[in-house]
């Protein structure tokens, strides 16, 4: 595939969960096939994994479809490899799916259709999200263009799942922060949402699509309180204070 013909690069960013990635891989494979057949577009698939265990390496070696190009690192950071995948992506748009999450078969198709105004800085998310695992519930992703939407609320929680679709330049300009649990910083997706909102990117749901977010252990895609004592690192949206030099 030449770069100019690739409409979308799907980045499946993998946590170190071995064969438990499989449902995620299968759902992405279906979504890609559906979009290619219905939209007649070329889609690139990158699997970005920071493999710290043999189990994940073995799974990726044996069970991932051949068409998926694998980008493997051993940096111990899931977001760094996601950023590297963005740099290597050849599609005009990028769709990010977090390994362990599931996307509906029509996710890419509907996102491509919704991405009509390609001059607008928009990131699309599945319209409905099912959280399962530690807790089970369903929510609709908010539309930033809703007059009732207030960015104040981003102080308390991330509204949008990590599953996102948007023009490559947005992902290229806004890298995902690397985890720094030593210093208590996390919530890369939330941070990314805040950074993009502050830079004028509009987050919108794609109606009629659904995704499933697997909540394991203390990993959460929604609220800070579910993620121990991690804080979102400083960022543009909340960095409103200038620091004074101290002699």
């Amino acid at each position: 595939m030449s770069p100019s013909t690739i409409a979308v690069t799907v980045i499946l960013a993998c946590r170190d969960i071995g064969r438990f990635l499989h449902p995620s891989v299968r759902s992405v494979a279906v979504a890609i096939e559906t979009a290619e057949s219905e939209m007649g577009v070329a889609i690139e698939w990158l699997i970005a994994a920071d493999t710290s265990s043999q189990a994940t390496a073995d799974y990726l070696h044996s069970h991932v479809p051949a068409r998926a190009r694998q980008l493997l690192t051993c940096n111990g950071d899931f977001n760094a490899v996601k950023n590297q995948a963005v740099r290597e992506a050849e599609g005009q748009a990028i769709a990010v799916v977090t390994g362990d999450d599931l996307v509906a078969s029509n996710w890419l198709t509907k996102s491509l259709k919704a991405w009509t105004d390609r001059t607008k800085l928009v990131v699309l998310h599945p319209g409905a999200v099912v959280v399962f695992g530690n807790s089970c519930f369903l929510f609709s992703t908010p539309d930033q263009e809703n007059p009732d939407f207030s960015k104040d609320t981003l102080f308390s929680r991330n509204h949008w799942p990590g599953i996102s679709f948007g023009p490559k330049e947005i992902f290229a300009c806004h890298q995902f922060i690397q985890s720094d649990t030593v210093h208590g910083f996390g919530h890369a997706d939330w941070h990314w949402a805040c950074e993009t909102v502050e830079d004028g990117v509009c987050h919108k749901p794609v109606p009629g699509t659904i995704s499933c977010c697997h909540q394991r252990g203390n990993h959460s895609c929604i609220t800070p309180s579910e993620n121990g004592h991690l804080l979102m690192p400083p960022g543009k949206l909340f960095q409103l204070f200038s620091q004074q030099d101290q002699a």
Binding site: P23, L102, G133, C136, N146, T153, F155
Partner: peptide, 30 residues
């Protein structure tokens, strides 16, 4: 769509059992 995903991931709870949480509601606030 959800049932299709249920074929891939049997751990997904039954659709009817999902509690809807209005996180997108405009009146929610911080």
């Amino acid at each position: 769509l959800y049932e299709q995903l249920g074929q891939i991931e049997p751990l997904l709870p039954p659709f009817e059992d999902l509690l809807y949480v209005p996180l997108d509601c405009g009146a929610t606030e911080s």
